[in-house]
């Protein structure tokens, strides 16, 4: 039984296939509205994440299926000490597919090793979140018409941002990719990203602290939040925070077809004034997230149109 735990579980060809299905869903939603009739998705969220859970649930409803939802709470079986393995075996008797979010790294893998139905990792602590990466890839593909030959800038907290690490890994399998890493020195990517991912795959990359000078060459700008708690002292935070906030003024030097992305929720790192700019793609990402989850669940359930 196939599950999705890590974005690397999918080959680039399988990702292309999902993108083709997703584009077709967007064009012909009616064609897909009943394909999962009688199928049940169990969303097991041992950590709250309303937007991810809603995205999975909306995706299953749009395929004509049903949803059973368990969110963490005092009454849940995890609170009673049930193991992830036992939960996976039990839920396999009720549902056809599981989407699991868990605060512990590797929990969805344990579930997949024990379930008799497909398991989708909906985020395990700071480790993996493959459907976010699929969402980002679909967005880039739809906005740019390709996943290769792109200059992609990542800005903000690149040290702790798992969405950033995972998207960099996914993009490093395509040709002609250039990565520009824009962050304060305190929040640069972990060294395994530069050595094991970028250098190992021969990816052209650049590290800078200056968003303004990096902007003109970018096709994609992926923004993340710079959180106050990541800094050792308040002064450093205050000194740096405005440098990584995107404003209409800063965008003047950017390409006219730049695609601005953000995994959301945002706080203040993208000025509201940019929302109306045609280059803002972060709300399209939310929509694309639902669509790619539809395509993914169809694939894992082996449902064909």
């Amino acid at each position: 039984m196939k599950s999705l735990i890590d974005i690397q579980d999918l080959t680039p060809a399988e990702i292309d296939e999902l993108i083709v299905t997703a584009n077709d869903i967007i064009e012909n939603p009616k064609k897909y509205s009943e394909v999962c009739r009688g199928k049940k998705l169990a969303t097991l969220f041992f950590e709250p994440s309303t937007r991810t859970r809603l995205s999975f649930e909306a995706a299953m409803y749009e395929l004509g299926g049903n949803v059973m939802s368990v969110s963490s709470g005092a009454s849940s079986s995890a609170a009673k000490g049930e193991s992830v393995a036992d939960t996976a075996k039990t839920v396999s008797c009720y549902a056809d597919i599981i989407a699991m979010r868990h605060p512990k790294e590797g929990a969805p893998l344990v579930a997949a090793m024990n379930a008799s139905i497909p398991v989708i990792n909906a985020g395990d602590g700071g480790h993996n979140h493959p459907t976010q990466t699929l969402t980002d890839l679909l967005t880039i593909s739809r906005e740019k018409g390709r996943l290769d030959n792109l200059t992609v800038g990542f800005c903000g907290d690149l040290k702790f941002g798992r969405t950033v690490h995972s998207l960099i890994s996914a993009l490093s399998r395509y040709t002609g990719i250039k990565i520009v890493l824009i962050s304060p020195e305190e929040l640069t990517v972990p060294s395994y990203i530069t050595t094991d991912v970028l250098e190992k795959n021969g990816i052209d990359y650049e590290q800078t602290t200056d968003l303004l000078s990096a902007l003109p060459e970018l096709d994609i700008l992926y923004m993340t939040r710079v959180q106050k708690e990541r800094f050792f002292n308040e002064e450093d935070y205050l000194r740096l925070k405005d440098s990584y906030i995107l404003t209409p003024d800063k965008l003047k030097g950017a390409k006219s077809d730049l695609c601005i992305m953000h995994p959301l929720p945002r706080v203040n790192e993208i000025a509201i004034a940019i929302d109306d700019d045609p280059r803002a793609c972060y709300f399209k990402q939310v929509f694309n997230g639902k669509i790619i989850r539809m395509a993914l669940m169809m694939k894992l359930l082996e449902v064909h149109v």
């Binding site: 605060p103 790294e105 590797g106 929990a107 344990v110």
Partner: peptide, 29 residues
């Protein structure tokens, strides 16, 4: 933060991810 830290019954499994440098990584995290 690894699932093996809370679920004691799980086997601790490591995979060889870089044979050249003898690097092993936890299967789960």
């Amino acid at each position: 933060r690894c699932i093996t830290s809370t679920e004691q019954e799980l086997p601790h499994i490591f995979r060889l991810t870089d044979a050249q440098n003898g690097v092993y990584r936890c299967l789960y995290c």
